[in-house]
Amino acid sequence: MAQPMPPMLTDELPDVFPISAAESAADQQDVLSVLEQLKAMDATLALFYAEGMAPIYGQIQTIRDASLSLEILDQMALPNVVDQQALHCLTRLSGQQLRFDTRFIGYDESAPGSLCIRLEMPCSFSYLQRRGAFRLDLIPRRPVSCFLSVKGDEIEISVADVSLGGVGLLGVIPGVALVPGLILKGARVELSSGNCLIVDLEVRSQADYFLKNGIKTIRTGTQFKALSPRDAQTLMRYINRVATQQS
């Protein structure tokens, strides 16, 4: 039996279905307008095809009358999508989270050098009422390390989880108040795959966190300030691979 997706504490794309939604945009012209905006801003879309599985990420390349073409950013994950009929797509636009349902039609061979799939044109969008992104909860044998520069010294801080939106840090840093809005510049995030990301992190939230041994600590939710496309693709592949292995 597939394990349910973990709840997300950060800020990018929602994690599980069903999610309560507000009014839907059903007018076809409204749908096209939303899709054009997502395409223009190179927004990342997360495709969910089964509960308990990590999302597959892509970006809109072309929009036609009855379909749209989506470039898959992690080509290794594509075989999991092509046999699925119903797909759920989640994204973000102007601070609002959007969901639409679609179906896989086939491959789009009009974009040489990239791997694109064609999806059925959605009939409506739902505006989601909760925040969140798929979060990969880390286990001891697959740790992620985060190193911060504090007053000229490099300090390692434990990582509870990682997502396309940011990382969850555990514990406190002596002499540093991790208050919302604080920017942690030049943080080095080392993945267990051997890849390393140099990023700026913005502190978004803090909450009590209980370790498996019952000890209480603090979890600090942080958001990537400007993740490069290359780093985003590296992180997507890492999350997809580890989530699949853990399921």
Results as ranks from 00 to 15, higher is better:
residue 85 Q to D: 14
residue 54 A to F: 01
residue 119 L to N: 01
residue 26 A to V: 13
residue 242 V to E: 09
residue 164 L to W: 01
residue 30 D to W: 02
residue 53 M to K: 13
residue 47 L to G: 00
residue 105 I to Y: 03
residue 102 T to F: 04
residue 63 I to S: 05
residue 218 I to Q: 07
residue 43 A to D: 07
residue 196 C to T: 11
residue 174 P to M: 01
residue 48 F to T: 08
residue 175 G to H: 11
residue 37 Q to K: 15
residue 48 F to N: 03
residue 41 M to R: 13
residue 120 E to F: 04
residue 247 S to D: 15
residue 228 S to K: 14
residue 181 G to Q: 08
residue 166 G to I: 01
residue 53 M to T: 04
residue 213 N to Q: 08
residue 163 S to C: 09
residue 96 Q to A: 14
residue 162 V to K: 10
residue 240 N to H: 14
residue 125 F to Q: 13
residue 143 P to H: 02
residue 46 A to Q: 01
residue 142 R to I: 02
residue 121 M to Q: 12
residue 147 F to R: 08
residue 157 I to C: 07
residue 139 I to C: 05
residue 158 S to K: 08
residue 121 M to D: 04
residue 53 M to P: 00
residue 61 Q to M: 14
residue 68 L to K: 06
residue 143 P to S: 06
residue 40 A to E: 09
residue 66 A to T: 15
residue 214 G to S: 06
residue 132 G to L: 03
residue 20 S to E: 15
residue 34 V to N: 10
residue 16 V to R: 15
residue 186 G to E: 06
residue 106 G to N: 13
residue 122 P to C: 06
residue 10 T to Q: 10
residue 191 L to E: 02
residue 76 M to P: 01
residue 224 F to T: 11
residue 79 P to G: 13
residue 35 L to Y: 05
residue 80 N to L: 07
residue 172 V to S: 15
residue 56 I to C: 13
residue 11 D to H: 07
residue 160 A to M: 04
residue 228 S to P: 03
residue 18 P to S: 04
residue 98 L to C: 14
residue 118 R to S: 03
residue 199 V to Y: 00
residue 167 V to L: 07
residue 234 T to R: 14
residue 6 P to M: 09
residue 135 R to C: 08
residue 11 D to Y: 09
residue 67 S to M: 14
residue 70 L to C: 12
residue 79 P to L: 08
residue 102 T to K: 10
residue 58 G to R: 02
residue 238 Y to C: 05
residue 70 L to T: 10
residue 162 V to S: 06
residue 2 A to K: 10
residue 92 R to V: 05
residue 209 Y to D: 08
residue 58 G to M: 02
residue 189 V to E: 01
residue 18 P to H: 09
residue 231 D to S: 14
residue 191 L to V: 02
residue 186 G to A: 04
residue 66 A to N: 13
residue 108 D to H: 02
residue 96 Q to P: 00
residue 135 R to N: 08
residue 179 V to L: 09
residue 196 C to D: 12
residue 112 P to G: 11
residue 62 T to M: 14
residue 247 S to N: 15
residue 154 E to S: 15
residue 6 P to V: 09
residue 30 D to V: 03
residue 88 H to Q: 14
residue 58 G to L: 03
residue 38 L to Y: 01
residue 67 S to G: 05
residue 140 P to G: 05
residue 124 S to N: 11
residue 96 Q to S: 13
residue 169 L to T: 06
residue 158 S to I: 00
residue 21 A to P: 00
residue 37 Q to R: 15
residue 159 V to Q: 01
residue 11 D to V: 11
residue 133 A to D: 14
residue 137 D to F: 01
